[in-house]
Design a binder for these strands. Structure first.
Length: 270
DNA sequence: CGCGTTTGACCGGCGC
DNA sequence: GCGCCGGTCAAACGCG
């Protein structure tokens, strides 16, 4: 199993596509749906989106690595996203407490294959590494990344009981691109509720999240569901969302978000 | 004083 | 088995 490598490779592919303003979705929707929740997070937004692209039919053997890429049309910030998960287990650990039990937990995990939470990687063209997405994060580590001159930072949601983590790293291919990988689901709403997020939050407060997302006030015609999914996702991400939205309004570069359907499918190697 | 960041150490998974 | 690497811990430190 080289899921990590595969993931990295895929990510690189994403980055390459990024360079061409690629938009890519290749999510194991079943997994996403399994992880559905009612908090205004990207995960629900994405999971609630209808299957659109030429996704390979989710079989029993769901690809471990599926990447989604999204490149919004912004001069100063662009975003792509990816998901990667095999199984959804919100209780998997990452709420680990800082106690002597940690080691026991680790020992426990030895027996069962480590189950990771759903992950979504966003590629954001930004000068700042840590983007304000409306949640409060605490940095708990930083590591140098192989094949990249830039370090990777690890953040955890500071809200009690919320074990959502995110990794932030700068693309080695394009230093202006920040890759933010979210892992897990927020069990709460954004403590910093931005204007736009309010809308999104309201939309998702209902037991059944609507499949139709609050439409952005962009000047373009949102069209492929993929794109709807994309910008809907941003509606849940505070400052960054606003930044992006502003850019959309200013430039309306929808074409940058759209890629040929052929590019929407990442060939799985298995 | 509380909260967040920094940073070196540690651990587990994986490939060779 | 060993080494590499990613991910996490936790003490020290900084800041408001």
């Amino acid at each position: 199993m080289e899921e990590v490598k595969k993931e990295e490779e895929l990510r690189k592919g994403d980055q390459n596509l990024m360079g061409n303003s690629g938009l890519l979705f290749d999510i194991p929707l079943m997994d996403l749906l399994a992880g559905q929740d009612f908090t205004p997070s990207l995960f629900e937004l994405l999971s609630a989106a209808p299957p659109t692209t030429t996704l390979p039919p989710p079989s029993s053997a769901v690809p471990e690595s599926s990447e989604v890429l999204n490149t919004p049309p912004t001069p100063n910030s662009s975003v792509s996203c990816s998901s990667n998960e095999k199984a959804f287990d919100a209780d998997d650990g990452d709420l680990r407490e800082k106690s002597p039990f940690n080691k026991q937990l680790k020992a426990k995990k030895k027996n069962q294959k480590r189950i990771r939470e759903p992950r979504f990687a966003f590629m954001t063209k930004s000068e700042v590494d840590h983007l304000d997405d409306g949640y409060r994060w605490r940095k708990y580590g930083q590591k140098a990344v192989k094949n990249s001159p830039y370090p990777r930072s690890y953040y955890r949601c500071t809200t009690a009981g919320c074990g959502v983590k995110k990794r932030v790293e700068r693309s080695s291919d394009d230093p202006s691109v920040v890759v933010t990988t979210y892992e897990g689901q927020h069990i709460h709403q954004s403590p910093i509720m931005p204007r736009g997020a309010l809308t999104a939050a309201a939309a998702f407060a209902s037991p059944q999240p609507p499949l139709v997302f609050p439409q952005p006030q962009y000047t373009y015609t949102p069209a492929p569901p993929v794109d709807v999914r994309f910008d809907a996702a941003f509606h849940s991400f505070g400052e960054e969302r606003r930044r992006i939205e502003g850019s959309f309004q200013d430039h309306g570069l929808l074409q940058d978000m759209i890629v040929p359907s052929s590019a929407l499918h990442i060939p799985e190697e298995e």
